[in-house]
Amino acid sequence: MSRARFVFAGALGVVLAGCVNEETRLYEIELDGKVAVPDGAPSAGAVHLAFHVAKTFGEGDLEHPLGVFETRTVAGVGPVRETVLYPLDEGEGLVVYGWLDSDGDGVHCAPGQTEEPAGLVKVAGFPAHALSFSLTLRAPCVGPESLYP
């Protein structure tokens, strides 16, 4: 590369770097997990998963636990393999919350339904591109806020 080209490329880089509007930094994580229900509990139905940062950044009072960044639905309890993109600038730590859609209505514990269990696990080893977790759905009809911290 000639000196002129080098200078031009550098100048272009400086201009572009100084003119970014939104910069989003994501961190890819391959999650190898297992979703289960306690022995003997009904296990039929899809499982809805929500991936949260464990702690969301914020100044003073604005820092708070949890903050969902991706959701997925898997066919049922059992092994799970999902790739998620973690928002590096939003928080730290990784939490997986899930609930079993026993009646298949897509709503977690609609009025009158009290049997759809939920669970939450803080994934150990974060940050790493490959992580594993084990999630047991045992608490009926609760949101992640009742399970963490």
Binding site: L16, V20, E22, T24, L26, E28, L88, H129
Partner: peptide, 9 residues
């Protein structure tokens, strides 16, 4: 212009 960076393995 917006910039997206993805850190993969």
């Amino acid at each position: 212009p917006d910039l997206l960076t993805i850190e993969r393995a």
